[in-house]
Computed example of a mutant assay.
Amino acid sequence: MSAAAPHLVHGMGLALEAPAWPAITADEAAAVLAHFPDAGRLAALAWHSPRPFSAAALVETDRGPLFLKRHHQRLRTPAALAEEHGYMAHLRSAGLAVPDVLRAADGAGAMALGEWSYELHRQAPGIDLYRDRQSWTPFLSPDHAFAAGVALAQLHRAAAGFAAPARGRHPLVSSFTILPALDPLAAAEAYVAARPAVAAFLADMPWRSELARLLAALGEGLAPRLAEQPALWTHNDWHPSNLLWSVEGAVSSIFDFGLSTRSCALHDLATAIERTVIPWLALDQGRLAEPADVDGALALLAGYRSVLPLAPAEIDTLLRLLPLVHVEFALTEIDYFFGILDDREGAMLAWQAYLVGHADWFLSGAGQGFLARLREGVAA
């Protein structure tokens, strides 16, 4: 009998790669489930997630399917997971379909075993149409983009009143401190200084002048506009494979709140556009192998605006924000790759190909054309 195929995960490009974190085993899953009184007994591991930043599996139990996720404690402690679980509980209480978090025997929504943190969710309703697709790839249709826009607006409406402070300096958590600052470059200095791994990685690079160039070229007048935006807890990783779908093509459930924190609605909306309509995985030497999906962006915006209208000034701020919305997450990816994995190549991809490369694409003829068509389409 041939050996089972090795478990592979999504990489920083289009190819599958060996995982940084070992796949969850049946014995491991059974041991974790024993700490959750409502979990039941393990029957089988049904599927291993190809997401790269943690290990996760769909587990079958005698009480139904559950989703088990494991993080290294350097990435997420149980206390850090409790921050996002609190947000999820608020959204559920407002009627939004997000996964139900099971409680361990001590009442906590996550637990630590050795070097790992574990969380356990009930399987959310809906069809996982995008589960084998790379995270930052387009919607299958404009109808899906419209439905995702509707769901994002519903999330923003449900998030109102959740007043928790922004999350701490955990790697791979979005943040909103640089672009709305009176002096964005000084805010970037503070961001880097507060994260020793990021500071060490950038120490011998002209990162200040590079970031100053991008801010001067793309961020003129943006900071005061963002500073006026109402603070709101947001999802911050809105793409089709974080959504479950109905047969009719509506969004049935929303999951993966690992990047969620306090930012603003326009930041979340810009992130959704940036991650779903521009084929970044096909970016090579500053050029995209496939064109950006203007129709998908317009459909997502139309869906959003059907629930939460946007004033012309908000649209203008959104389009000014779009070319730079990725900056802080690129920096926290450096924190993850260099600080946790000791992966200099991955950190360099986050800096050069992601932070600098994406912004430079928006400065190119193709990027400027995309923004112009998007502006014209929204105004039509």
Rank of each mutant, 00 (worst) to 15 (best):
L322M: 09
F36M: 03
G367R: 04
F176L: 04
A223L: 02
A216Q: 13
G13K: 05
L324P: 00
L68S: 06
P196S: 14
A197R: 05
G296N: 06
A43E: 13
W361R: 01
E220P: 04
N236G: 01
A43K: 08
A223V: 02
A366Q: 11
Q368P: 08
F67R: 04
A194P: 03
P22R: 11
A379G: 15
V247K: 06
W207C: 03
I340W: 03
W116K: 02
N242K: 06
A104G: 15
Q123E: 15
L91Y: 10
E345T: 11
A200E: 15
L129I: 03
A57Q: 03
A350Q: 08
P240N: 07
F201Y: 12
A297Q: 05
A23I: 02
L214V: 07
L266I: 09
P99R: 05
A159L: 05
A82V: 08
A30C: 10
P230N: 08
M111N: 14
V192F: 03
L341T: 06
G377W: 03
L185N: 07
A217H: 13
R320E: 07
M348S: 12
R275K: 15
A270C: 11
R344N: 10
P180I: 07
R133T: 14
A187K: 14
E290A: 10
G13L: 04
A313F: 04
L244P: 00
L243D: 05
H326K: 10
A297V: 04
L45N: 08
Q123S: 13
M348K: 11
